[in-house]
């Protein structure tokens, strides 16, 4: 099946699919319509449980089981990357020399690192109040950590990032999510049910029952997952050389 036949097939199938999709779009209810039955019920359920951020309530309270599934997808992707990008027997690891970085860039990276880390933790902590949550905060915190590589060099990052700790942190976070769910089961209600803790007063940090706990667990898991992912990619791109040893030491 050479390239030309394949392109021709793509063209025919593409136009047929386009026609069907456009026909479907024309039958959809108008954009900006007023009928949102699920949305209204989700907002009522979230307000009943004193969770200010309805999206976090949907994610960690009404659909907590789906978020558990999504966590396992994240965990599986990280394990896949760790297995795929491991250092094979015939490859050797070259020490990366420090990269000469301009003074203002290095100072900016070291100054913004704590601010970005703090912002990441703030976004996780306020997950069930203002826009934000475990997912976003985890990614922001993990990206902030890599400012050390961007501002300084890979050795500085390796010194501050013990990889075993982050892999263990990833596993601990997922199991913390599970244990919180089992606690609901033990509390004679249902797995991951939000009936365990008092709902607290509206719009305060401790409101929403188990939502903040699950939020923190997801935040830690996403942060550790991204750090481990980037660590594997950085190792491959910066340190690990091929058996023939060529192409070594590029920054």
């Amino acid at each position: 099946m050479n390239r030309r036949i394949r392109l021709w097939l793509v063209a025919v199938a593409g136009t047929a699919l386009a026609a069907l999709l456009v026909a479907a779009c024309l039958d959809l209810p108008d954009f900006g319509g007023d009928r949102h039955p699920y949305g209204d019920r989700a907002v009522d359920a979230s307000l009943a449980r004193h969770t200010a951020n309805t999206v976090a309530s949907v994610n960690f309270d009404q659909r907590a089981f789906d978020t558990l599934g999504e966590l396992t997808v994240l965990f599986a992707a990280v394990v896949g990357c760790v297995v795929l990008l491991r250092q094979t027997r015939d490859e050797h690891r070259a020490r990366p020399e420090p990269e000469p970085v301009a003074r203002p860039v290095r100072r900016y990276a070291l100054a913004v690192l704590p601010v970005a880390l703090l912002t990441g933790l703030y976004v996780i902590a306020h997950g069930q109040l203002s826009p934000g949550g475990g997912f976003q905060g985890g990614v922001v915190a993990a990206t902030a950590l890599h400012l050390l590589y961007l501002g300084a060099d890979y050795r500085a990052l390796e010194r501050v990032r013990p990889l075993g700790l982050y892999e263990a942190g990833d596993a601990v976070a997922v199991s913390a999510y599970l244990v919180t769910g089992l606690a609901g089961l033990i509390g004679a209600t249902a797995f991951l049910a939000n009936t365990l803790l008092p709902y607290g007063t509206f719009n305060t940090l401790s409101s929403g029952g188990t939502v903040p706990l699950l939020n923190a667990a997801v935040g830690m898991e996403v942060a550790c997952a991204v750090v481990v992912l980037l660590a594997r990619f950085l190792d491959q791109a910066v340190e690990i050389e091929d058996p023939t040893g060529k192409g070594s030491g590029t920054p």
């Binding site: 934000g132 976003q136 992912l229 980037l230 791109a237």
Partner: peptide
Amino acid sequence: APDVGLSQLAVGSALTPLLLLLTVRK
């Protein structure tokens, strides 16, 4: 949808380009 916008910002501004460029380098 500020939550989704925030996660798209966090993922799309620094993480995805870093992954793509590291793969291109390798």
